[in-house]
């Protein structure tokens, strides 16, 4: 029962939503929409599990005086700081302290992390050009051609460079992309079908 009922729930919910694409009836669509909202509500509740996990893992690290434990204190304090701001200091609207902290702490931190990608891509590119196999050579040469074709110097080198880059994007790249897309979709559908029928029950965990 502990496994069969969840599998039955998954199957029924899955079939119900597979039908969504084929039933255009307004009332039925509104039921689909309502139930979809339920999934979002479920996530909001499940977030408690995530917070509990953060607290447990970091409190254990602090308790055991593990290396770098003071930073775990920073993590927990900042977590509660945001929750306190959100609940007791005027909510989350524009102009609230919560909003200010988001824009002046979280946003710069996130966007700088994102900006680090410029350095990572440079080092990855450097490595990509150390060609070891024919496949690696194809990747590296195409990457260089596309890079040159996308900057003004490409056009200076050869008038048709931008057009050539476009051709790479529209012919071989497009073909490769479609092949991966179709293959991956078939794999995903097949896995989804196994989940639906209970053949794949990984998501339920052990007994």
């Amino acid at each position: 029962m502990r496994r069969e009922i969840p599998i039955a729930i998954c199957f029924l919910a899955g079939i119900f939503y597979t039908l969504e694409l084929f039933i255009p009836h307004r009332q039925v669509l509104s039921i689909f929409e309502t139930v979809r909202q339920w999934a979002q509500i479920l996530i909001a509740f499940a977030y408690v599990l995530a917070i509990a996990n953060i607290l447990r893992v970091n409190f254990h690290a602090i308790q055991k005086n593990q290396r770098d434990w003071p930073y775990k204190v920073v993590l927990i304090v900042s977590l509660f700081f945001m929750i306190t701001l959100g609940i007791f200091f005027g909510g989350i609207g524009e102009g609230t302290i919560f909003d200010w902290v988001y824009y002046h702490a979280q946003y710069p931190l996130q966007s700088t992390m994102f900006a680090l990608l410029a350095f990572f891509i440079a080092s990855a590119a450097f490595r990509a050009f150390r060609i070891r196999t024919l496949e690696a050579a194809l990747l590296a040469v195409t990457a260089v051609l596309v890079m040159i074709g996308r900057v003004p110097v490409g056009e200076e080198l050869w008038n048709n460079f931008p057009d050539f880059t476009e051709w790479i994007m529209n012919v071989p790249q497009l073909a490769g992309k479609r092949a991966i897309m179709i293959g991956a979709a078939l794999g995903a559908i097949s896995t989804a079908l196994k989940v639906l029928t209970g053949l794949e029950r990984t998501y339920l965990g052990g007994e």
Binding site: I9, C10, A39, A46, Y203, L204
Partner: peptide, 25 residues
């Protein structure tokens, strides 16, 4: 907790199945 996870999975899989077939195949 499996009941909730199964419900969530069912919706997700049900939405994904036709969409994958439609958009990606």
């Amino acid at each position: 907790s499996r009941f909730s996870i199964a419900f969530y999975m069912g919706i997700a899989v049900g939405v994904a199945l036709p969409l994958e077939m439609q958009q990606r195949v």
